[in-house]
Computed example of a mutant assay.
Amino acid sequence: MNKILTGAVAAAVSFAFVSEAAAVEWNVSLWGKRRAFTEHVEKLAELVSEKTGGEFTLNISYGGLSKNKENLDGISIGAFEMAQFCAGYHRDKNRAITVLELPFLGVSNLDEEVAVSQAVYSHPAVQEEMAQWSARLLMPSPMPQYNIVGTGEPRDQLAEFDGMRVRATGGIGQAFSAVGGVPTSVTATEAYNAMESGVVDTVAFAQHAHLAYGTINRADWWTANLNPGTVNCPVVVNIDAYEALSPEHREALDSSVDGAVGHYLENYGKLLDKWDSVLTEKNVTKVELAEGELDAFRKVAADPIREKWIADMSAQGLPAQDLYELVMATLKQQRGN
Results as ranks from 00 to 15, higher is better:
4 I>H: 09
4 I>E: 13
5 L>S: 08
5 L>K: 15
6 T>M: 15
6 T>E: 02
7 G>L: 09
7 G>Q: 11
7 G>E: 13
8 A>R: 04
8 A>S: 05
8 A>C: 11
9 V>M: 07
9 V>E: 04
10 A>Q: 07
10 A>D: 02
10 A>H: 01
11 A>K: 12
11 A>R: 07
11 A>F: 09
11 A>V: 14
11 A>L: 12
11 A>G: 15
13 V>Q: 04
14 S>L: 09
14 S>I: 01
14 S>G: 11
15 F>P: 03
15 F>K: 00
15 F>M: 07
15 F>D: 00
15 F>W: 00
16 A>G: 15
17 F>I: 05
17 F>C: 15
17 F>P: 04
18 V>R: 05
18 V>A: 09
19 S>V: 06
20 E>I: 07
21 A>L: 03
21 A>I: 08
22 A>D: 15
22 A>W: 00
23 A>C: 01
23 A>K: 14
23 A>R: 15
24 V>W: 03
24 V>R: 10
24 V>Q: 04
25 E>I: 08
26 W>S: 05
26 W>Y: 08
26 W>A: 00
27 N>L: 11
28 V>K: 08
28 V>P: 09
29 S>W: 10
30 L>F: 10
30 L>C: 11
30 L>S: 10
31 W>Q: 13
32 G>T: 08
32 G>F: 06
33 K>I: 07
33 K>Q: 15
34 R>M: 10
35 R>C: 12
35 R>V: 00
36 A>G: 12
36 A>C: 07
37 F>R: 10
37 F>H: 12
39 E>W: 14
39 E>N: 07
41 V>N: 10
41 V>M: 12
42 E>N: 12
43 K>E: 06
43 K>R: 10
43 K>P: 01
44 L>W: 01
44 L>R: 03
45 A>T: 15
45 A>H: 08
45 A>V: 06
46 E>L: 09
46 E>P: 02
46 E>V: 03
47 L>A: 10
48 V>R: 04
48 V>L: 09
48 V>D: 04
49 S>C: 03
49 S>W: 11
49 S>G: 11
50 E>R: 05
50 E>G: 08
51 K>W: 06
51 K>N: 13
52 T>N: 07
53 G>V: 02
53 G>A: 03
54 G>K: 02
55 E>A: 00
56 F>K: 01
57 T>F: 10
57 T>R: 15
57 T>V: 15
58 L>Y: 13
58 L>Q: 04
59 N>W: 05
59 N>G: 06
59 N>Q: 05
59 N>S: 02
60 I>T: 13
60 I>A: 11
60 I>P: 14
60 I>C: 08
60 I>E: 08
61 S>N: 13
61 S>T: 14
